[in-house]
Design a protein around this nucleic acid. Structure first.
Length: 432
RNA sequence: UCCCCGGUAGCUCAACUGGCAGAGCGGCUGGCUGUUAACCAGUAGGCUGGAGGUUCGAGUCCUCCCCGGGGAGCCA
């Protein structure tokens, strides 16, 4: 029995007979020469069927509809005419399952609404597969980065009893008769965990019930969060920069074929991270935004047009540091030289991909934390455990959260976050 | 929550100032020994999102509703 191989390994099987399993991704015919495009998750290969194959296989090559699942046998050949450089001279094809209805998604343009209705099938198509493979690569690179640096992968709960940032909208649910929420960030818990393990990170889903309807928002999205004891603001920025550069370099070298399939030039990405990331203070950013002709009040948060202006100005990732403490959450430490500024930074991605990372040094004194909770109008009681962290061996510590889908969208060059996750959840869209 | 755009064949879209409902793709039938979202010929396919209204006449104009898309605010 011939061994089953995957399309990605065909280059090492030239001249050999192989057995492939997959799906019909396309077919063409020119009378007595028929072409079957086979995909198996690792790649696509064109199978050539001539009357030399057995007669049942020859007619199947014409009859099999799109997305029929099949097993094929044939000889691997190098051929410049074939997409990918290799093709299979097919000797036999055996159906595994033949659909009785036409596959809803044709090899042509479709509207977004229609594609989203069929997301469970859309993810099989030629652009979607490389995106999802790159997403895996980006997450894998992140884990490798943290592993190399001695971080411990840990977890934060998804079901929580208190909100991280009182202002943001939460999904509420009934927890045995008590109100509970879906987590909008694992940060507070990571602060506790880092006092146990030193350097920690986690990658998990977070939820925002904001009624956002834009290409930059999902209601369920993944965050990569890290928290480090004894790390201060400056070191936090260096860590973030190292991580982002590591991810980009990994994607460019290990996923060159996926990037090419998306027509995303790896050199553009590598250029963007080759120099040290730009840094500006909030005050400088406001200046810059106004000079770009975007209206903005001193003291306002950066809106989407403002972020775009900053992004455009630098053409590479840029840290915006020291926001007014007033517009930032209660847990951020104030700058020692200016109590009105938070020791924080947002990392704004290039090409208008918006805020990729939000990070800060955290408040480490009990008195200060309680004061900032009060100033934010939050009740002390639910945060008692969080305040406790400052009672026993409090240390300076910092961390950040990276938006996974925004990073995937940037690296893949996507126009919309919905393609950066297998099953996006958005306002008005929870199926499939 | 607010602002803008849209809903016509399975899909993507046309249809002038209100005047016979159209094309491409996909499907089906046939042709072609190197196709690249193949090509060529033929063929089937419609409650124009829903409800009301104006009009001799509405896909087209008006009102309300439903659904989808884009953006703002907020954020990652």
């Amino acid at each position: 029995m011939m061994e089953h191989v995957y399309v990605e390994s065909l280059a090492s099987h030239v001249g050999q007979e192989v057995h492939l399993k997959g799906w019909v991704a396309g077919k063409r015919s020119s009378g007595k020469v028929r072409f079957l495009l086979l995909r198996d998750g690792t790649g696509m290969v064109q199978c050539v069927v001539t009357p030399g194959a057995d007669s049942a296989s020859f007619s199947l090559a014409e009859e099999l509809p799109l997305e029929a699942s099949v097993e094929v046998w044939g000889t691997v050949r190098e051929d410049a005419r074939a997409p990918g450089g290799h093709e299979l001279s097919l000797t036999r094809v055996q159906p595994v399952h033949i659909p009785s209805e036409d596959f809803p998604i044709a090899l042509k343009e479709h509207g977004v609404g229609f594609l989203m209705e069929h997301r469970h099938l859309w993810i099989r198509m030629r652009r979607q597969v490389p995106i999802l493979r790159l997403r895996d690569g980006i997450l894998w690179a992140s884990r490798q980065f943290f592993k190399e640096r001695g971080f411990v992968a840990t977890e934060s709960p998804i079901l929580v009893g208190t909100s991280v940032e009182g202002t943001t909208t939460l999904f509420t649910l009934d927890y045995f008769g008590r109100p509970a929420y879906l987590s909008q960030s694992g940060q507070l818990y990571l602060e506790a965990t880092c006092a146990a393990l030193g350097k920690v990170y986690w990658i998990g889903p977070t939820f925002r019930a904001e009624k956002s309807k834009t290409r930059r928002h999902l209601t369920e999205f993944w965050m990569l969060e890290a928290e480090v004891a004894f790390l201060e603001h400056e070191g936090n920025l260096v860590l973030q920069e190292d991580l982002v550069r590591y991810i980009v370099e990994y994607a460019a070298s290990e996923h060159a074929a996926d990037l090419e399939a998306l027509e995303r030039d790896p050199r553009v990405l590598l250029d963007q991270v080759s120099e040290p990331f730009a840094r500006v203070t909030y005050a400088e950013a406001v200046q810059l935004v106004r000079e770009a002709g975007v209206e903005m009040e001193e003291g306002d948060d950066l809106g989407a047009p403002a972020e775009d202006a900053i992004s455009k100005h630098f053409g590479r990732p840029v840290f915006v540091e020291r926001f007014p403490a007033q517009i930032k959450p209660f847990y951020m430490k104030r700058a020692p030289d200016n109590p009105h500024q938070a020791l924080c930074a947002d990392l704004i991605g290039p090409e208008g991909y918006g805020e990729l990372i939000g990070g800060s040094q955290r408040v480490d004194s009990e008195e200060e934390l309680e004061r900032q909770l009060r100033e934010a109008g939050l009740p002390l009681e639910p945060y008692k455990w969080y305040v406790d962290l400052r009672k026993w061996g409090s240390v300076p510590h910092s961390g950040f959260g990276l938006g996974v889908e925004r990073t995937v969208a940037w690296i893949c060059g996507l126009a919309h976050l919905r393609e950066a996750i297998p099953f996006p959840r958005m306002l008005d869209r929870i199926d499939p």
